[in-house]
């Protein structure tokens, strides 16, 4: 099955391991993720003011590329666009929702964006985890060659995958989609109270020590509930929870670091993908000791 895939900026820069592992895992499931010939920045954060239509142009143009790919038959099925980054997912879906519910705004933007074809509002924005849920956890489990037995992972969901609720892929307070995936991979998924608590997001630029404090609290809580590592889908959560452990250690001498995985890295590992595709060397807190301890390496 071929599906249009929007990577976004960070997967081509600091989160290469998210992309390489996701592509490898999808391949094992018989999915070919096809990147549009051209795409642009989604803007990362959705515009929240009612008059700020201009900010929807970026996401809209990416939706149009998916529409074109569907018309040209270069992908299968109904027009869809697959995302891995929750921030891309959120911005694209927010724009899509606005275009579908406010026809006047769609008309204005189509007129402004006259160099592209008109958007018809029919593209579905999909997150990788939703696609897996649609395929079925039993089918995911059937592809596992190296079960992640004994690995205790706390899935961290963060904000933009779940909220606001008209955008989110799961329950905004008690999500289970990542837990279900980890269980299908043979790992033990740990539910903990801060799984949906914000990591501080872009505050990491002007307020890095506030974010480090949030990282400290989230990781300490996950450890209290028995987790040995975290999993996430967001390259910004990953940066804040993984790299900001350095600042957390500076402030709290007793703090014990914890590896943070992309859920796709764990999928690729369980599916027996190449080590290069798993990309563990890009993790900030090294995960190899834990994986060797569990005889997964």
């Amino acid at each position: 099955m071929k599906i249009a895939y929007y990577p976004g900026c960070t997967l081509k820069a600091t989160a290469k391991s998210l992309e390489s592992s996701a592509l490898a895992a999808a391949k094992a499931l018989g999915i070919e993720m096809v990147e549009p010939e051209k795409w642009n920045c989604c803007g990362v954060v959705p515009s929240l003011t009612s008059d700020d239509l201009m900010r929807h142009i970026g996401p809209l143009r990416n939706l149009i590329h998916a529409q074109e790919m569907s018309k040209a038959g270069s992908v299968d099925g109904d027009p869809r666009i697959l995302t891995l980054c929750p921030m891309c997912y959120n911005t694209l879906k927010s724009t899509n929702l606005r275009m579908r519910t406010k026809p006047d705004d769609l008309k204005t933007l189509n007129e402004f964006n006259y160099l592209d074809e008109n958007y018809d509002g029919k593209v579905e924005v999909l997150h990788y985890l939703e696609l897996l849920r649609d395929i079925g956890w039993d089918k995911v489990a059937a592809k596992v060659r190296k079960p992640l037995t004994g690995l205790k992972i706390a899935p961290y969901y963060g904000c933009l995958l779940l909220r606001p609720k008209e955008i989110g892929i799961d329950d905004p307070e008690e999500p289970t989609i990542q837990n279900e995936l980890l269980n299908a991979l043979g790992a033990e998924s740990i539910t903990f109270p801060y799984a949906t608590r914000c990591c501080g997001s872009y505050q990491t630029v002007p307020e890095k020590y506030s974010v480090a404090e949030m990282t400290y609290e989230i990781i300490a809580m996950a450890r209290k509930y028995g987790a040995e590592a975290l999993s996430t889908s967001c390259p910004l959560c990953a940066f804040n929870l993984d790299n900001r452990q350095k600042e957390a250690q500076e402030k709290h001498s007793h703090f014990k670091p914890m590896p943070v995985f992309y859920f796709t890295q764990l999928m690729a590992l369980a599916f027996g993908a190449d080590r290069k595709e798993c990309g563990f060397e890009l993790n900030y807190i090294e995960p190899m000791t834990l994986l060797k301890e569990k005889k997964l390496m």
Binding site: A13, T14, A15, C41, M87, S201, Y202, V205, P235
Partner: peptide, 15 residues
């Protein structure tokens, strides 16, 4: 040098 693009762009959008 270490901040990912996702952090810098969202920070610019909001601030």
């Amino acid at each position: 040098a270490t901040l990912p693009p996702i952090a810098l762009i969202s920070c610019s959008q909001k601030f």
